[in-house]
Design a protein around this nucleic acid. Structure first.
Lengths: 248, 248
DNA sequence: TGAATTTCTGCAAAAAAACGCAGACAACAA
DNA sequence: TTGTTGTCTGCGTTTTTTTGCAGAAATTCA
């Protein structure tokens, strides 16, 4: 096999699989790994692939992940815009924390008059930017990692509120396992919110659909609305629709 | 699995869940925890994640509150360093908000073990950076300007605490008029704190010495300690010493 | 405080890369 | 044809990288 031919083949493989192993290529083309390495070095030199220890990666693979400030902002904005439609003047809204909720806070209409109750300090900051929104912070011990208040005091305060809506962000959700999370304190708070809210809305980017964590929050049936960045009729969401969840 | 691939996967997981456990990743990817730790260290080195004991956090979560353009930072740091000396292990400390208090939070020794109770969200963020400090947030309606919680609920919560120390920042103080402020809600909170704390400490840059605002918080006699950036024997502080206030 | 985790620090083994070298091979000129 | 030249390729050796492991140190948590 000619060298040029080999280079073209390698490039094709990289773009096809996003990843190649030197050892694998060596076996396929029946040349020494040394030669493969030299070929990869040449292609990398031209910027056509990214050479790494053990093989090479496609350009698109690495670039997409290297520079992203907030993860999947666009998707989260899409979700937030759908969620906003559920909020009306005069409502009492319970929310957790997380970046999706923060995005929701940013896209709230300026003229919306509602009361937002939250345990999340970052979320409270965001809500505070809206002149017509009343913000209630649930106090208690501050959980340092997630910057939310947790504990019995917070739970009992939450349960005293008959909220119209409850937005839960930052979840793992699965049709069989229900809603799950990996932080014990967060789970307690979310449970309390679900128990007291008239309508439970889960905000989740599609990547978290069909995933589970260690701690269970509630069954899928207890969720009223599920919002993702996908179109509502997406196949991936069918199992949830069957559970009686409204999809937006 | 290639190393680069693994790094990308880990970064993805961190951004997705805001938090990952080394043990969990190790199990998922089927490599030793040592390797995971080294990967996390590498990603942390590049500033892509924040490494913590046991795993890592997404860095979009940890953004500190704007602390660049604080007026008279140096003076406030001087004050903070004096104030720190009053805090000892095991104490319960009540604090208001303001940039001076934020500065105090930053200079707290790493090994200090104390409980800080605050109505100020920015202050809570700062306290949360200290691993050995327990942070209690007093919840209630959020005052948008000052980012502190105010209201009857907050007041009554404060009064339930027998704090050892109470730090008041952001004041106008005058020997004759006592401590004054211009925000009704803030005044209520400060009054509650003074009434319940064993020792009342006022932090004030010298510019605010001998000034008054519209609303009275308390008489000068009720203040136990006054801390400014001036040397304790400064002439400007004499009237306060005469009122029985300890000057630091 | 003491027990349980987690992290750090060498270290060693395995894998991969780099390097130098020599033979193969094609292109080209005399 | 023959000799020269330059590129390509494989091989052995050396270096570097990666990874897991054991024991010590540090950290967390009850």
């Amino acid at each position: 096999m000619l060298k040029e031919e080999r280079l073209a083949y390698i490039l094709h493989q990289v773009n096809l699989h996003n990843k190649v192993l030197s050892s694998h290529l060596s076996e396929q083309i029946q040349v020494s790994e040394d030669t493969i390495r030299r070929d990869l070095a040449e292609l990398a030199q031209e910027g056509k692939i990214i050479k790494v220890h053990g093989g090479a990666l496609s350009n698109s693979f690495h670039q997409g992940i290297a520079s992203q400030d907030v993860y999947a902002v666009e998707d989260k904005k899409t979700i937030a815009l759908k969620a906003v439609q559920l909020i009306h003047d005069g409502m009492f809204v319970l929310t957790t924390g997380g970046t999706t909720i923060a995005e929701l806070a940013r896209v709230l209409p300026r003229d919306l008059q509602a009361t937002f109750i939250t345990v999340s300090l970052p979320a409270a900051f965001e809500y505070a930017n809206h002149p017509n929104i009343e913000v209630i912070v649930i106090g208690d011990k501050l959980s340092k990692g997630s910057k939310i208040t947790v504990g019995g005091e917070a739970i009992s305060k939450i349960k005293m509120i008959r909220a119209d809506l409850c937005f839960l962000g930052n979840n793992a959700i699965d049709a069989a396992d229900g809603l799950t999370d990996n932080d014990w304190d967060v789970v307690q708070v979310k449970r309390a919110m679900i128990s007291t809210a008239k309508k439970v809305v889960v905000l989740s980017i599609s990547e978290k659909i069909d995933t589970s964590e260690q701690l269970k929050i509630c069954d899928a049936e207890e969720i009223d609305v599920l919002i993702t960045e996908l179109p509502p009729d997406s196949k991936k969401l069918q199992p949830y629709r069957k559970k009686g969840i409204q999809i937006l």
